[in-house]
Amino acid sequence: MSLFRVALFSFLFSFFYSCGKKSEPLSEGGLERIQALMADMEKEAQEMAAELDRVAHLYEYLVQKRDSVLEESTVLKYTFEGPFSTNRPDQDSSLSSVIILNTTSDRKKAEEEVRLTNSLDSLFASFIRKNKMAVQIYSNSAMQVSRVYPSYDAKNIVDPNIDVTTFNFYYEADSVHNPSRGLVWIPDAYVDPAGKGWILSLVHPIYEGDKLFSVLGVDFTVSALIQNYLESVEGNFILVNGKGDIVAAKGEATEFLGMPPLKNHVYRESIQSDNFRISDFNLFHSKSAEVRKMAQALLFEKKNRYEFVDEANLRLALGLSFNKIDWYLIELFSEY
């Protein structure tokens, strides 16, 4: 799950792209197809952000009306075995997984917070229904209370002794990193050790007066990007980060680039495995010198096209970068 990763957490998905000026017309549909894909991604990302913002405002209302909410909500609703709520994922789909971490400074106040925020369950469920790409929505609080929907096997995944406030998916939303108190796209994606593949995240701070009460967040997967966007058009596409790591691939792209000969579904399975080594899928590690030159041109020199000369299976690569994240969408064209 996405809440408690020692790995670098997840991804600014701000999907504004930079097109750059072209000195000559581009063939093969040009950059327009890539721009269209990015525009579709941006639209859905904006819709998801707007919906999360709505949830955040309702969450803030709960916090502001703490006394009256607690007067009406006298039942804890969840039972606990130590830090973990006892409900299992296969029992009640309306419930979240709730954790009161051992690092809480006041267990009684933490339990009070659980009562205060119990109505988030229905908001979280509604959010997941409306946003098909979202895999989970959650809250992490200053009192070390974590609530995640849908529920999951937290007891066998989460270390109950962590301090959630030391992770970037919490502190990136604080007043120092986010003085505007608005939505924040986490700038890095990470490979989820629980098998979800690459996770991307959006977070929103929840304040009680001038004090950061908690951070609300939503996660979605890169595999959803492949299924919803890259597979919707013909062509061989790769999504790479600024270091040349291949985050997503479609068609025969990885084989053209001298990567291990994995078909798309197998590639997704590899990227979802716990022991996936991203260095195996880095453009700068390709056995082809021209592929490495292409990566240099598109990623470091910020060019939008690269024409292959000595590569037997490739003749052209077109690419654009996202504006606020060091990621690139590249389409490859073969000789045949």
Rank of each mutant, 00 (worst) to 15 (best):
M133R: 15
M48K: 00
F80Q: 01
Y59T: 11
I128S: 11
S126P: 00
L62T: 01
P89Q: 14
K77I: 12
F84C: 03
A134E: 04
A154M: 08
A45P: 00
L101R: 09
E42V: 00
S119E: 11
I137C: 07
E112A: 12
S68I: 11
M48H: 00
E47S: 10
D153P: 03
D92F: 13
A49N: 11
T79G: 08
N140G: 07
L52Y: 00
L101K: 10
A154N: 03
S151N: 07
M48E: 07
A45F: 10
S141W: 01
A39E: 14
T86H: 03
N131I: 06
R66A: 02
S85L: 06
E111C: 10
L52E: 01
T74L: 11
F124Q: 06
N102T: 15
A56W: 01
A45T: 04
S73L: 07
L120T: 04
N140D: 02
E60Q: 15
E113Q: 15
L62N: 02
L70M: 13
S141E: 04
M133H: 06
E60M: 14
I128K: 06
A134L: 04
R66E: 11
M143K: 13
S151Q: 05
L70Y: 09
M41D: 04
I128C: 13
S141L: 04
V145E: 05
N118S: 12
A56D: 07
A110E: 06
K155L: 01
A110G: 09
K77F: 14
E51P: 00
K132Q: 13
Q136V: 00
S105F: 02
E47H: 07
S126Y: 03
K65Q: 13
N131E: 06
E112Y: 08
I128H: 10
A50D: 12
F80Y: 10
N102E: 15
D121K: 14
R88F: 14
L76E: 14
S122D: 11
V148K: 06
T104V: 13
K108Q: 15
I100L: 10
E71N: 13
D106H: 02
E44S: 09
Y78R: 05
E113I: 12
N87V: 12
V114L: 05
